[in-house]
Design a protein around this nucleic acid. Structure first.
Lengths: 211, 211
DNA sequence: GTCTATACGTGGATAGAC
DNA sequence: GTCTATCCACGTATAGAC
């Protein structure tokens, strides 16, 4: 919206919607570093190199910033690790490799998971934002479903349960492991739990007849 | 600490540590009703029927109140539902019943889960409180371990994996389902996912030889 | 239209009066 | 020991400078 006409090339006024993105990025940096509570409008503007007043010129309220943050990638970008799996081994091994691949991306950047958890918690309390977690979960689910379908196809596997049901189980298991790990911080325990789920999930598949 | 000597039975000063408990209870009520963000020291004192200044007389800081809250029961009280299970049916059915029993207690009081999640998130950011989630998880784990052992004994089941490993899986699965449900709020999906986990967990057990 | 300075109400926390 | 008055920082709103 606001258009501002095409080709706004005023000499020094580089900012229109750009500031929003700058503030969103700055907010994410502050949150990952010091938590959502420390991400005050003043701290965010300082991180972005802007005066405090710039905030409410770009966003109507702080909730609008939260909404913008939750609408970005964040955890949706986890999918990059899946394609690297070779489906030659037996199901349990392959599934374990898949879950571990996801886990490594989480472990490399735990702060993002923490911020995501804080944002979702916040959104669940604000009626204006409560749609965002729902949307995020649905997007997440569809992504996992397509990944499972592709993998099952490549590995010549057949599912003994509904794909969406299995995807929900995968999401819940991964989310639960991450959440627990954030509390106990024991890498070995997390990996062992993950492997256990891989073995359990493997029992929900069977080799497909050659077509 | 602070002792205050034994048998402090002053005529009208009913308040010493009692105020702390009153404030903790009031804080929990406010948090469940309007979220952790709305639980300001002023709101908590008002809910408890005390003047604002009473807060920092009972607690050195607000973090101390958070610590007191996390040290209470909260989710640890979920265990009441387990004993009602009859271990006569086949493993998958029994485990499903167990998981559903837990789930019903969650669904009857979702606000507590939300508050717990908010408190844990907060504690994970504060170095002074980061021990509490770790302690809570360990307590939780031991409780689930003992429940599993007792159930396996009653149902004449043998575990094909380590008890603690299975307990971690159960905790992660339940936590993940609750977390997802808080986002999508679809009871049917949560139940279906839970039943899926029950089926998967059942494959990690086998009937034990009569002894 | 783009940007900034300033003012107001409320939060946690403290000093000091009863 | 109990409570009131007060402090500084925060989110928010607005007036007004470029």
């Amino acid at each position: 919206m606001t258009t501002a006409s095409a080709g706004g090339r005023a000499k020094k006024q580089v900012s229109a919607e750009v500031r929003r993105e700058q503030l969103v990025a700055a907010a994410l940096r502050v949150m990952k570093k010091e938590g959502i509570a420390a991400a005050t409008t003043r701290a965010i503007c300082a991180e972005a190199g802007m005066p405090h007043g710039a905030f409410h010129y770009c966003f109507r309220s702080k909730r609008e910033l939260y909404a913008a943050l939750l609408s970005t990638d964040m955890n949706i970008t986890f999918g990059e690790a899946w394609p690297t799996v070779v489906p030659t081994a037996d199901p349990a091994d392959s599934i374990r490799t898949l879950l571990r691949a996801y886990w490594s991306t989480v472990q490399e950047d735990p702060e993002t998971q923490l911020v995501l958890s804080e944002l979702v918690n916040l959104a669940l309390r604000e009626p204006e934002l409560s749609e965002l977690p729902r949307w995020e979960h649905r997007t997440y689910l569809e992504k996992v479903v397509s990944h499972i379908e592709r993998y099952a196809d490549e590995a010549h596997l057949e599912l003994t349960v509904d794909v969406r049901a299995l995807a929900e189980m995968v999401i819940s298991a991964l989310g639960g492991v991450v959440s627990s790990w954030l509390s106990h911080r024991d890498d070995a325990v997390a990996l062992r739990t993950l492997d256990g789920f891989a073995a359990a999930f493997a029992t929900l598949t069977r080799p497909r007849r050659a077509g």
